[in-house]
Amino acid sequence: MIRVVVADDQELVRAGFSMILDVQDDIEVVGEAGDGAAALAAVRELEPDVALLDIRMPLMDGIEAARRICAESDTRVVMLTTFDSDEYVFDALRAGASGFLLKDVRRDDLTHAVRVVVAGQSLLAPAVTRRLIDDVLRGRPRHRDPGLGLDRLTDRERETLVLLGRGLSNAEIARDMMVSEHTVKTHVSNVLTKLGLRDRVQAVIRAYESGLIVPGG
Rank of each mutant, 00 (worst) to 15 (best):
A127P: 00
V128F: 02
T129C: 15
T129W: 07
R130M: 03
R130Y: 02
R130A: 11
R131F: 03
L132C: 06
L132I: 08
L132F: 03
D135S: 15
L137H: 04
L137K: 08
L137D: 09
G139P: 00
R140I: 07
P141Y: 05
D145F: 08
D145S: 13
P146E: 14
P146T: 12
L148E: 09
L148Q: 12
L148G: 07
T154W: 03
D155T: 11
R156K: 13
E157A: 04
E157H: 08
E159R: 14
T160A: 14
T160N: 08
L161M: 02
L161Q: 01
L164H: 09
G167P: 04
G167F: 05
L168G: 02
S169P: 00
S169G: 04
A171W: 00
E172P: 00
A174S: 11
R175E: 15
M177W: 02
M178Y: 04
V179C: 10
V179L: 09
E181L: 00
T183W: 01
V184K: 07
T186A: 12
H187M: 04
S189D: 13
N190G: 11
N190H: 13
V191M: 00
V191K: 01
V191L: 03
T193E: 15
L195G: 04
G196L: 04
L197V: 07
